[in-house]
Simulated scan of single mutants.
Amino acid sequence: MSSTTAGYSAISSYSRVEILRLLTERTRRTITELSEATALHPNTVREHLQRLEADGLVVRTIEHRTTRGRPRVLFTAVMGEAAISSPVAKRKVREAANRGDLMRRMIPDAEPDTRDLDPDALHQLDAIVEHLADSGFDPAFDAHNLTLEVRRCHHQATQADHRETLCAVHLGIMQGVLTEAGGPLRAVAVRPEGVPNGCVLQLARSHAAA
């Protein structure tokens, strides 16, 4: 797994969180639109978008024009249960599944809580656990309650005033990771209470899978 810490994760900057929030509210936005909405310089917005693209959280498309003029570059967040696909996100979930399969072959009893999960759900769990670990968190899966306890959230202290927005954006990111991985598991809620310096991510099985 990556040794990336939360201080270097894509959502460690609240400006990037705000950009993701705006792209969730309305897709296919331009740098100029995001700059006006955030009061950030266009070059700063461009740098944030490049970082989000590199992490598979944003994709860009070129506007299709039927009139004269230079086509605009449009940005969309890879978030939520109806997330669009990102080549970077697709590669990440595939590599996480490969690493998970390898570990389970080498150490069959390493993850006793995952024994009852089908392969698709296992690979979703591989993807979401690796995402959280790469973001600097410390996730622990509870098969009985179908939850992920997420600890070491530095946002609780450094960005406490924005916690509601942060949790909503991160829930959307995790929904996107599970959607990209494909399978029966869904992220339905984040509960910050009861976990010191962390939260609980509530998972559920899709109705079709159930």
Score class of each variant (00 low, 15 high):
Ile19Lys: 02
Pro108Ile: 11
Ala133Leu: 10
Met103Arg: 15
Thr61Pro: 01
Ala160Lys: 15
Asp134Arg: 06
Thr30Met: 11
Val73Ala: 12
Pro119Cys: 06
Arg91Met: 10
Ser3Cys: 04
Thr114Phe: 04
His162Tyr: 14
Leu57Met: 13
Thr76Ile: 07
Met174Val: 06
Ser135Arg: 03
Leu57Trp: 04
Leu125Ser: 01
Ala110Glu: 09
Met174Gly: 01
Leu57Cys: 07
Ala209Leu: 08
Glu25Pro: 00
Ala181Gln: 00
Val17Asn: 02
Arg104Asn: 11
Gln202Ile: 12
Pro112Ile: 04
Leu20Arg: 02
Gln50Val: 12
Arg46Leu: 11
Leu203Pro: 06
Arg91Trp: 08
Gly80Met: 06
Ala127Thr: 02
Thr61Glu: 12
Asp118Ile: 09
Phe137Ala: 03
Ile62Glu: 15
His41Thr: 06
Glu193Ile: 05
Val177Leu: 00
Arg46Gln: 13
Gly183Asp: 00
Ser2Trp: 12
Gln159Cys: 04
Pro108Val: 10
Met1Trp: 06
Ala110Met: 13
Arg104Pro: 03
Asn43Gly: 11
Leu23Trp: 03
Arg16Cys: 06
Val129Gly: 00
Asn145Gln: 14
Arg70Gly: 01
Met174Tyr: 03
Lys92Val: 02
Gly136Cys: 10
Ile62Tyr: 08
Thr30Gln: 07
Ser35Gly: 13
His154Tyr: 13
Ser35Phe: 10
Glu95Val: 08
Val88His: 04
Glu33Arg: 12
Val58Ser: 06
Met1Leu: 10
Ser12Cys: 11
Met1Tyr: 07
Asp116Pro: 00
His131Asp: 07
Val78Phe: 05
Leu201Phe: 08
Gly7Met: 10
Arg51Tyr: 04
Val17Pro: 01
Glu33Leu: 10
Val195Ile: 15
Met174Pro: 00
His155Ser: 09
Tyr8Thr: 14
Ser15Thr: 13
Ala6Asp: 09
Ser15Met: 03
Gly69Met: 07
Thr30Asn: 10
Ala83Pro: 03
Glu36Pro: 00
Ser12Gly: 14
Val200Met: 08
Gly172Trp: 00
Asp116Phe: 09
Met1Cys: 08
Glu25Ile: 04
Val188Tyr: 05
Arg68Asp: 12
Leu52Gly: 05
Asn98Leu: 14
Asp120Met: 08
Thr76Cys: 06
Gly172Phe: 00
His131Glu: 12
Leu178Gln: 00
Gln124Val: 02
Thr66Met: 11
Ala189Pro: 01
Thr4Tyr: 09
Asp126Gly: 05
Asp161Thr: 13
His123Gln: 09
His162Lys: 11
Ala157His: 15
Cys199Tyr: 12
